[in-house]
Design a binder for these strands. Structure first.
Length: 651
RNA sequence: GCGCCCCUAGCUCAAUUGGAUAGAGCAACAGACUACGAAUCUGUAGGUUGGCGGUUCGAUUCCGUCGGGGCGCACCA
């Protein structure tokens, strides 16, 4: 709604500038005045024009305002401050349009090209922890926002099934537990939790004696060679852990289209192909002297944005093996459809609603598999510590001459999750009292497991429901508790900027007051309740909505209530603009905070007894309020959907 | 040493990418329920935006510099 309106007004503004000064100001944007009484939209175009025109900005603004007052959808225009042109919209018409748009939503125009978002990508050797949860929620939310804005998106989860982390757990099974595949396969219960503890013990095992550490290399080589008992054990571990991870993420409403395996990248020789491409293009060179002698390197530091890095990045070691970053370039080229080599695919599983999860394979391909890769934009959700390697990957793509593909290579970097002091203490860390947040060492087996956290949230929510409304059926209480837990966790992980270190505090995450997911959920639940109540008292909601369509909304929006309704409506109308900004800036927190702002505006309005729907002073008033509440429920539900926050029937 | 991120209210974070009087939540204090569900709302208090310079109509935002914190800069994955 607001975007289309803004586009029209921007055209009108440019036309006004041409008419008055014979100059086209180019792209013009709109801001929002600090106080709604000052106007609904503001433009600072006059201030920009002032410089070129060598005239008083307020004079220019006056000329623009005079013309803008006649633009369609505008009721009046004023000059304010240093030279802002403030526009007052035709509120009745705008509210009607907003309500109609929410009632009959038009999908966003399809954006050409395919996008891949890769997220989660947890080493398949132990249970997921809070840091992984941040990754997955960030990625999943970004996917939801992209799709809402008309992007065609595929979600990939990268499985590093041949790395040292898996090897470490295999070392644990072989040398600490003396278990072979059959015995490992017989381990009952939570396998990811079992490996979590085992992995910590392997750390101690390595530290105890240097020869122990040598086992790691042995196992790693066996896994890479394949076709042996050790490799079979590694495969079992990885597959079972992946299943655990998917289950954990499913609790949060997160799922994937493709599980891409590192082992298949190796077996299908993606790197060989990429190596040939890089050599042919002259993108990499063989070092013939100095300390990198014998290595193939990618030149870094001469690109315009590549901030000075002294040394070139080694992709192939002097012994001829490829580095991790080299493989990553090959994989990225595949994602972009620029590696003329493909995975093979088979179905991993089909979910009850028909959603299909595929996985890569180096065996036979299922002819029914959809096309993967070939993306125009690739968003890799990886922690900020990987910024340098990610820049190398991008540079590698660019060095092949793939300018557009390099531009489509995005790193959705996010900072790590640390523990607050109180939470660290609660988990058994030794904490120095004066310090701030506490880093979690993955090796030590401490830290917060994702499932433990979700469990704790569910217990807390359930206790809260019991306290408020013990009469409800147990099953319903359980379901609501789950929904509230997910809403609380997702919102908590989304409310901060990506590049903020997130200090995790159990108490805070478990709190249901303030800027939280449950607050947002509760707003919708509250609003929906009134419709049932209206019906129960003999009113007909549909009829009231119909009546609202015939009202003179402009006249009814005068007065205090009108001002509140208008502020709420304008805020809701900005939702698509906010989602678009979230895509452009790759920052989902914008949507989260906007959702909270809308919920807050609604609570503030709805709370007031004088705006009662049940005891409305006239049928017209009642109809107006029904219209507002209906619009809110629809908009807020859509926003919750973007954030992956479930909407409970009751709180 | 080089590069990146961060420093805003007691705490955790915002600030429409250079705009108007720097805003929210938590914590504190004072209030509002025989209820359109109080997981809510209203109000009070809380600021030299780390320091100092600069750029301009305008700087939390851009530049320089100093200070403090975090992370990268592997022939590890």
């Amino acid at each position: 709604m607001i975007l289309a309106l803004q586009a029209r007004l921007a055209d009108a503004l440019r036309a006004a500038a041409r008419d008055a000064f014979g100059v086209d100001p180019g792209a013009v944007g709109f801001q929002y005045p600090p106080d709604p009484a000052m106007g609904d939209l503001a433009s600072s175009a006059a201030m920009s024009l002032a410089k070129a025109q060598r005239r008083n900005p307020r004079e220019i603004a006056a000329a623009l305002a005079e013309r803008m007052a006649k633009a369609p959808g505008v009721s009046r225009a004023e000059v304010a401050g240093a030279g802002f042109v403030n526009l007052f919209l035709d509120r009745g018409a705008a509210l009607g349009t907003l309500a109609a748009g929410l009632r009959d939503p038009q999908p966003a125009a399809a954006v050409p090209g395919h996008a891949i978002v890769e997220h989660t990508s947890i080493n398949p050797n132990k249970a997921a922890h809070v840091g992984h949860v941040r990754n997955a929620i960030l990625g999943d939310t970004f996917v939801r926002i992209l799709r809402a804005r008309g992007h065609d998106v595929g979600v990939q989860n990268y499985i590093d099934d041949t790395g040292v982390q898996v090897a470490d757990v295999v070392v644990g099974f072989l040398h600490l537990e003396k278990k072979a595949l059959a015995e490992v396969a017989a381990i009952p219960g939570r396998f990811d939790y079992y490996c979590w503890d085992l992995y910590a013990r392997v750390g101690d095992f390595y530290a105890a004696a240097p020869e122990n550490k040598a086992k790691q290399a042995e196992v790693l080589h066996a896994i890479e060679a394949g076709s042996n008992d050790v490799a079979a054990l590694a495969e079992h571990v990885a597959a079972r852990i992946v299943a655990c991870h998917l289950e954990t993420m499913a609790r949060l409403g997160i799922r994937y289209e493709l599980l891409a395996h590192e082992s298949d990248i190796l077996r299908l020789h993606f790197w060989n192909r990429a190596f040939a491409l890089l050599k042919d293009a002259g993108a990499i060179r063989l070092v013939t002297e100095g300390k990198q002698i014998g290595c193939w390197v990618l030149g870094m530091g001469k690109g315009d944005d590549a901030a000075a890095v002294d040394e070139d990045k080694i992709l192939v070691r002097s012994n001829g093996t490829v580095t991790y970053t080299g493989k990553d370039i090959a994989y990225q080229l595949w994602k972009l459809g620029r590696l003329d080599r493909d995975f093979r695919y088979r179905l991993y599983r089909e979910e009850p609603d028909g959603h299909k999860v595929w996985q890569t394979t180096s065996g036979d391909s299922d002819p029914g598999a959809p096309r993967f890769g070939h993306a125009r934009d690739v968003y890799n959700v990886i922690d900020v510590g990987q910024s340098y390697p990610q820049r190398v990957v991008k540079a590698g793509v660019a060095a092949l001459g793939f300018e557009r593909e390099a531009a489509g290579t995005h790193h959705l970097a996010y900072e790590k999750v640390v523990l607050s002091q109180a939470t660290a203490k609660a988990l058994g860390y030794e904490v120095a009292d004066e310090g701030g947040a506490v880093k979690v060492s993955g090796r030590k087996g401490l830290g917060v497991k994702a499932d433990d956290l979700i469990d704790a949230l569910e217990r807390k929510a359930l206790a809260e429901i019991e306290a408020r409304d013990p009469e409800r059926p147990a099953e319903q209480k359980q379901r609501t508790a789950r929904e509230i837990a997910v809403g609380a966790l997702r919102y908590f992980m989304l409310r901060y900027g990506r590049t903020r270190v997130l200090t995790f505090d159990l108490e805070e995450a478990l709190a249901f007051t303030g800027e939280t997911g449950p607050y947002v959920q509760n707003a919708i639940v509250r609003a929906r309740n009134i419709f049932a109540k209206l019906e129960a008292e003999g009113h007909r909601v549909e009829a009231l909505l119909e009546r609202a369509r015939g009202l003179d909304l402009g006249a009814m929006l005068d007065g205090d209530e009108g001002a509140e309704i208008w502020a709420l409506a304008l805020l809701m109308a900005r939702s698509e603009e906010v989602a678009e900004a979230a895509v452009a800036s790759e920052e989902p927190s914008l949507v989260a905070r906007h959702a909270f702002a809308v919920a807050q505006a609604f609570h503030g309005y709805y709370q007031k007894p004088k705006y009662s729907l049940l005891r409305a002073e006239s049928e017209d008033r009642r109809a107006l309020r029904v219209l507002v509440v209906d619009a809110f429920v629809r908009q807020m539900t859509a926003l919750a959907g973007l954030l992956g926050i479930p909407v409970p029937e009751r709180m």
